[in-house]
Design a protein around this nucleic acid. Structure first.
Lengths: 244, 244
DNA sequence: GCGACGAGTTGATTTAGATCAACGCGGACA
DNA sequence: TGTCCGCGTTGATCTAAATCAACTCGTCGC
């Protein structure tokens, strides 16, 4: 159930100020954005918008986790986007959605009506530049994800997912990779299965196996401690080469 | 083996003029691009660049087919991008490649050195705008592809791939959907397997099955006739809803 | 003309993960 | 304070696609 989420009003104190679409905006540009933004919250499980809908806004995730999902005609579900704080929802220049947008947890969005945002885009080079950068980052992430979906084993999928959450949870600078790391899984087992192209039974079994092998420890259902992140990464199937 | 490919010099007669990254450039902008472009050809099977390489150019595909591939540490291959004429190679603002770029057939590229192209990007709003649009189109395509990789059966994967090639081979306006359609598969069975997250044996068997079921006819190895595209699409597993 | 090689097909067998089924556990609620 | 429900785990069995193995066909070089 959604308890009331904190509502931010000043961009200067916004937790995603330096990572979101507004990251490279200067004070003046930020001011303009500030004038057209509004906040909206959704509770866990709600759908934010459905495939085919005309979405009259774009938005940044301020808090919580949303997912993008595609569904086959007979109801098989594949997650095609996992949106964490600072990620962007919506496509400027096109209102018709290609996939469902779901609130995987309670979610706070910083929204902009489509029209004024698109106009700002034309007058604010920094904004379009940042949007392009984010789109290309997402494309790179999508390609990693395709390797995972097409070629990795169930165990590799799970370890890759945990590593992904680790990477998004720690700023590269402040991460101590040689110490145990602790994360919260942002989504349920079912959502993990839909992310990874597995069933929830297989997700559960693989997590149990990783626990048995000492690669992870679990407290509750969502809290994971990784004693040695290098050991975990050795199981992801990824080439070691550090690209990026 | 690569026979000599035709080399174009004037943008005005370029076959991809109205679909590539330069599509929305005006005469003046085109002129500037023209000044920094150069052509390069690769023969089938060659790699254009490898993961980790610093690629000092970006390029548009003029003719032929290239693929982007990711490889697991033990050599499993997943195609993560299929680039047909008018598609764009490279990422402005970052030279380090995240994946291998391969020539799936003989390929002609229209190349731009990275630095001058990035400078043009800053002075040419149309260019950045078009690039953003293309990146977002590719992201949407990547998401369809993720549904395919994660949740579709082998038969659905093959029919989806054939449908994809049909859609890229016919301009929507001039396509006669109620008549038999004929396409050339742009890639080998092995490349199809790597695209679809299957083995070549499974690809071969599924194609045979589709032939047996009368959904497709094959002449040679690459030429496919689809008697009824609607029958084929009914097998893709996709939701009928026409979005986009 | 003929062996070698690469691309593709077909068949037999194996297996990773799906499916079907039961059960545990904690929180909501009457 | 029980029981109901959603979420997750565990066990038994099944199956789609992988793997292992031959074989065909075309073409390239000699």
């Amino acid at each position: 159930m959604a308890e009331l989420l904190p509502v931010f009003t000043a961009c200067s104190t916004c937790p995603i100020r330096h990572r979101a679409v507004c990251a490279s905006c200067d004070a003046e540009e930020l001011d303009a954005l500030n004038g057209i933004k509004y906040y909206k919250t959704y509770s866990a499980g709600q759908n934010i918008a459905l495939r085919g809908d005309a979405l009259d806004m774009v938005a940044s995730i301020v808090a919580g986790t949303a997912s993008l999902e595609r569904v086959t005609e007979d109801g098989r579900v594949q997650m095609v986007g996992l949106l964490l704080p600072s990620d962007f929802i919506g496509r400027p220049g096109r209102s018709g959605l290609q996939y469902d947008v779901m609130a995987a947890s309670d979610v706070t969005l910083c929204c902009f009506h489509r029209k004024p945002f698109e106009e700002m885009l034309d007058n604010t080079p920094h904004l379009r530049e940042r949007l392009l950068e984010m789109a290309m980052d997402e494309l790179d992430a999508a390609r990693d994800w395709m390797l995972l979906l097409g070629r990795k084993t169930a165990r590799e999928k799970i370890t890759s997912f945990i590593d992904l959450i680790v990477r998004r949870s720690y700023h590269p600078a402040e991460a101590k990779l040689d110490q145990p790391m602790k994360i919260e899984l942002p989504i349920s087992r079912e959502a993990m299965a839909n992310f990874l192209g597995l069933t929830i039974e297989t997700v559960s079994r693989q997590i149990t196996a990783l626990k048995r092998d000492g690669l992870i420890q679990i407290e509750g259902k969502r809290s994971v401690t990784i004693p040695d992140i290098y050991d975990l990464r050795a199981e992801t199937g990824d080439d070691e080469e550090d690209v990026g």
